[in-house]
């Protein structure tokens, strides 16, 4: 749903500046300096939830980043526990974070210093309920009171009659 919007904003950019694409490829292969690596390693541990994104939560510059911000917001991740970094404002970070995480795309989410994944993974975890559990277990959000008389989604696969092969 958000893909078309991000695409349109970047198409103009790509078309007018093919050299920018090439140079970003070259920097991606450059080895991450020890100093830059240490800076990122400290950053991911400095806050409970760390998000590397394009733009800011108020003004995301990419639909994938926007989706991640919305999901974190939906789960009530408090502002003081979330630190976001705008990779578009820092070219070294933009290439560095890909190498640090060994992950080719942005956004990237860390919880208590552990790499969780990108947008696809976060959406999947949100839908399956794993994200809520992860955030609760890491003390990012308070544990939800179980509502009696309803089945939670996580228990559904196990309650099937047919034993799995």
């Amino acid at each position: 749903m958000f893909r078309t919007s991000i695409y349109s904003s970047f198409r103009v950019l790509n078309r007018s500046a093919p050299s920018a694409v090439l140079s970003s490829r070259l920097t991606a292969y450059r080895l991450l300096s020890t100093e830059a690596r240490a800076k990122i390693a400290n950053a991911v541990k400095a806050d409970p939830v760390v998000l590397f994104m394009k733009g800011t939560p108020a003004e995301p510059q990419c639909g994938f980043s926007r989706a991640v911000v919305q999901i974190l917001d939906l789960h009530g991740v408090p502002g003081e526990k979330l630190k976001t970094y705008n990779v578009l404002a820092d070219e070294e970070l933009r290439s560095g974070i890909k190498e640090f995480s060994e992950w080719p795309t942005v956004p990237q989410i860390y919880v208590n210093g552990e790499f969780v994944g990108g947008c696809d993974i976060l959406i999947g975890m949100h839908q399956s309920g794993e994200l809520e559990t992860l955030l609760e277990n890491n003390g990012v959000i308070p544990k939800a009171e179980p509502i009696e008389g309803t089945t939670t989604e996580q228990t559904l696969p196990e309650t099937k009659d047919k034993p799995s092969a």
Partner: peptide, 22 residues
Amino acid sequence: TLARHRMVNELLKDQIAQMHAF
């Protein structure tokens, strides 16, 4: 899921580097 995505990222490394979004 993370391991699976890492696996796909690795085997499509060259292609993903040239894309805007994947």
